[in-house]
Design a protein around this nucleic acid. Structure first.
Lengths: 107, 107
DNA sequence: CCTCTTGTTTCAAATAATGGAAACATTGCA
DNA sequence: TGCAATGTTTCCATTATTTGAAACAAGAGG
C-alpha cells in the first residue's frame, strides 16, 4: 500500500474512532441544534464534567466539533454536521440489509 | 434519555466502532470493487488470515458486509456500500473545516 | 486579594481491543 | 480414507480506552 493511501485510511479510522461511543453520538446529537457548554451538556447527558470534557476533546481532535471560550465557560458547536445525516443514512442501510436477510430466511 | 434513543445511539456507535480501524477501512475499500475470499484478501493487505478473519467478522456483525461459502473458501462482499462514500464525504468535511481554521489563523 | 464557577489534566484501576500462534473444523480431491 | 487448502476459534500477551476522583488552571466578581 502506498503511503498516501495509508494516511487516508488512518485519518478515516481516527474519525470513526471518535464516533465509536454511544455517549459521543449522544452529545453530537445535542450539539446538532445549538452550541452547549461543557457543564450544561454533562448535566444533560448525565455524566461527570471531566468525562464530558474528555469526550468533547476527542470529537474536537477529530475535527467534528469546535470550541470557543466565553468568559469562564467553553461553548462547543458542531462543525461537520454531515456526520449525523451520514450516521442516519448508514443506519438505514444496515437495518435494511438485516431486514432483507430476514426476508430471505422466510422465503 | 428514553430507551429507544439509547438503542439508536448504541447501534450507531457499534457501526462506527466496526469502521474504527485502518485495516478494516482498507479491507472495505478492496471489497468495493468485487468480492474477496479471506485468504486472498489477507495476502493482499499483508496480514495473517486469522487476523483478517476476525476483522471481517466484525464488519459482518456490524452489517457492513456479508459472506457466502463457495466450496472451501468464503467470499465476503460489501453490503452497505454507502459507508465508503460516507467516509469520503466526512473526510472532506473535516479537512475543509481544518483548512478554514488555518485560513482564520492567517488573516 | 479571595472565592466561586467552569474546564482541563493527571493518576490509577478497570475494561476492551488487537495480534500472533496454535488448535480445530470443513470442504474438495486423489 | 488420507491429505491439502481454507477459515474460524481459542488462548495469551500487549496495548488502548474509559471512568472517577482529585489536583490544577483561568476568568468573573465581590
Amino acid at each position: 500500500m502506498d503511503e498516501r493511501s495509508q494516511r487516508r485510511y488512518q485519518l478515516r479510522a481516527e474519525m470513526f474512532k471518535a464516533l465509536a461511543h454511544p455517549m459521543r453520538i449522544y452529545m453530537l446529537d445535542k450539539l446538532k441544534n445549538r452550541p452547549w457548554c461543557v457543564c450544561e451538556l454533562a448535566a444533560e447527558v448525565g455524566i461527570a464534567k471531566s468525562v464530558a470534557s474528555k469526550h468533547l476533546s476527542q470529537l474536537k481532535a477529530a475535527g467534528l466539533i469546535d470550541d470557543e471560550k466565553r468568559g469562564t465557560l467553553v461553548e462547543y458547536r458542531l462543525v461537520a454536521s454531515c456526520v449525523l445525516e451520514m450516521a442516519a443514512c448508514a443506519e438505514g442501510a444496515i437495518l435494511e440489509s438485516r431486514r432483507k436477510k430476514l426476508d430471505v430466511l422466510e422465503e
